[in-house]
Design a binder for these strands. Structure first.
Length: 334
DNA sequence: AAGTCGGGGAT
DNA sequence: ATCCCAGACTT
């Protein structure tokens, strides 16, 4: 991992933010490109948010990028441009929670805080037969206490990384390889052959599926792209206008209706392009994509933060959601 | 304490 | 299909 070969606290911080709820393999390329484009906290602080989102495009949880950007500005403006060597100060920065504060402070500065992430909770649950569900907020304090007790205060960064590495490679969710585990002699689950029962999890709820219709509106050689508000789902990313189907409504009718509602345009020659599916954390979507031609009206936004007519070739300059990328190729092929 | 917020690899 | 990932923030 490239962030293991540096002692630059900025780089270690960036890696820890990217690694939130994201697997190492996925992060590596994004990390390399991010560091190349924003090599230090000053470069990140002065960069336009759109540039940061473009580099983050496809990594998900875009609030991480917005918070990282904002935190960099706070560091430059209020903290002398240096990552604070202090847990409490660093923890106050936007996007820095208990885990990231402990990880960065311990790995970059050798400050003795125990990090607790998903991997470590699983390792602890098995080591001590902890029945607290690892996906329940009520369990957090218990796992933190166990981690605090176990922490090697002479080498906290090394210890935290070793615990996570153990969880990622040996003490895996399914089929842990206990026979080659370096700490199996300490593990209560292994001693009682109950490693497959742990960790406990609280039940998760089924996710609903929504049906959407969006329209690619052509006018001269351009199409209309709208930007989402900065807060909420996919904040700051660009997309084609559309929305959910009403009860009993056809996708085509919903497309025309939402275009009238969201950007105040009337369109004509509506033709179906394709259908894509995508899964978010709390719901799934089926999106019917239409192409259509501008007929009349002036763009007035209800919902989006901004809108622009752009040429198809310029789409690659904008941060777009994965669901949009799923039909972009068909659009360019036209 | 529960809900929101992406995307993809592993199984 | 389902799980779950080097979580943080809002309500």
């Amino acid at each position: 991992m490239p962030w293991r070969r540096t002692d630059d606290p900025y780089r270690i911080w960036v890696s820890e933010v990217m690694l939130q709820q994201t697997q190492v393999k996925k992060v590596v390329d994004y990390y390399e490109r991010f560091i190349e484009r924003f090599p230090d906290v000053q470069h990140l602080a002065v960069a336009p948010l759109q540039d940061v989102l473009k580099v983050w495009e496809g990594l998900g949880y875009y609030a991480r990028a917005r918070n990282l950007h904002k935190a960099a500005q706070v560091i430059v403006e209020e903290l002398d441009g240096k990552i604070p060597v202090d847990y409490t100060t660093f923890r106050k920065l936007p996007g820095v929670g208990d885990y990231s504060a402990a990880a960065v402070q311990s790995i970059a500065f050798n400050v003795p805080y125990a990090a607790v992430d998903g991997n470590i909770k699983r390792v602890l649950a098995r080591l001590f037969l902890m029945e607290a569900p690892i996906n329940d907020a009520k369990s957090a304090k218990l796992f933190q206490q166990r981690a605090d007790e176990l922490l090697d205060r002479s080498a906290p960064g090394f210890f935290n990384q070793a615990m996570m590495e153990l969880g990622a490679t040996v003490c895996r969710p399914q089929s842990p390889t206990c026979l080659v585990c370096p700490v199996n002699m300490f593990c209560e689950a292994f001693h009682t052959a109950r490693q497959d029962e742990f960790p406990y999890r609280r039940e998760t709820k089924p996710v609903p599926e929504h049906h959407l219709a969006v329209g690619v509106i052509y006018r001269d050689n351009a199409v209309l792209l709208t930007q989402r508000q900065l807060d909420g789902l996919l904040g700051g990313l660009w997309e084609f206008p559309g929305g959910r189907l009403a009860e009993g409504e056809t996708a085509e009718a919903a497309c025309v209706r939402h275009i009238a509602d969201v950007v105040n345009l009337s369109v004509t020659n509506v033709r179906s392009l394709t259908r894509v599916r995508h899964a978010y954390t709390h719901f799934k979507i089926v999106v019917d994509v239409f192409q259509c031609d501008y007929r009349a009206g002036e763009v007035v936004l209800k919902g989006p933060r901004d809108a622009k007519w752009i040429e198809i070739a310029a789409l690659q300059d904008y941060p777009l959601p994965r669901a949009t990328h799923k039909f972009l190729e068909k659009l360019i092929g036209e």
